[in-house]
Design a protein around this nucleic acid. Structure first.
Lengths: 150, 150
DNA sequence: AAGCTGAGTATGGAATTTGAACTCAGCGCG
DNA sequence: CGCGCTGAGTTCAAATTCCATACTCAGCTT
């Protein structure tokens, strides 16, 4: 068998794995809605940003809406869809890894906190029976479903 | 200020955000150690795989070791480091999103389970006081530490 | 009517990616 | 000892993608 492994990680990355995609999503989830602002905050070139936004909209991760600020003409803004919001754990996990391993002398630049209690939020691995797994994934087992004892 | 946002997501993606990097890591975490096998399972071109492996090693995510299978000469194999294992939550989060939103008719191709109890494992958002957040990140608040949005 | 601004398009050169071919080392066989 | 095989890359040209800069277009404000 020399076909690459069938895997949801690969499928997800085909959609959000291109450069800038996750940063665009980060901005939108932070509440930044407009093309120019997203461009400024991410640093993505405009042409690429156009492509990415289109792709994220097509994938059902963002939604493009018209709106009309006072004294301006109709603009477009990008909102997260439910599917887009469900990528939060990916962003939080990436962020906490970066915080741990790549933070500069000033420490993490952004803190994610629980709106209700102010506590720092982390992505944890938990099994359906409520057992917590360590952050390094020890105790985790991958079970392919189309290989082996078929 | 027109500099892009300082953010650990961006920093992490600078290291693991290139094409193939996370798939290579997935393989290594699944126990695939050798160049040719990683190449087969991911589908990455050899030249790119060489680059990515080197970069992951440089970043302290993988470690390259020599070993000697019976009847063969010395080979190299790639092992995850602790920092590499700490990316598990990222992979699990990506996988669960793909499972939910991109699974084909056969359902998810791989299942992550808790070695001790067999229960399905998920990446959850939890605050330090033990409060669980919903998977779509509602109740999550980002607090920048050096930038004001207005 | 002209100017300004947000949201893109157009464009051409630089950087990456790709697949296919090539290299190199060393073990097992004869 | 020389030969072929295999794993782990390296080289190379073509295709793709990325990037910076310049250009367009709509419509509100003056």
């Amino acid at each position: 068998m020399d076909t690459p492994r069938a895997c949801s990680v690969a499928r997800s990355l085909e959609i959000v794995g291109e450069r800038w995609s996750l940063l665009v999503l980060r901005e939108v989830l932070l509440g930044v809605r407009r093309f120019a602002d997203i461009q400024r905050h991410t640093g993505a070139p405009r042409a690429v940003l156009t492509q990415r936004l289109r792709r994220l909209v097509d994938a059902g991760i963002l939604e493009r809406r018209d709106y009309r600020p006072d004294g301006e003409r109709t603009r477009q803004e990008y909102h997260p869809t439910p599917a887009g919001r469900e990528l939060q754990p990916v962003l939080v996990a990436l962020m906490q890894w970066g915080d741990r391993h790549l933070a500069g002398p000033d420490g993490p630049p952004v803190r994610m906190e629980h709106h209700d209690c102010g506590g720092a939020v982390h992505a944890h691995l938990v099994c359906e029976h409520g057992h917590a797994l360590p952050g390094d994934g020890r105790g985790l087992r991958a079970v392919p479903r189309d290989v082996g004892a078929g």
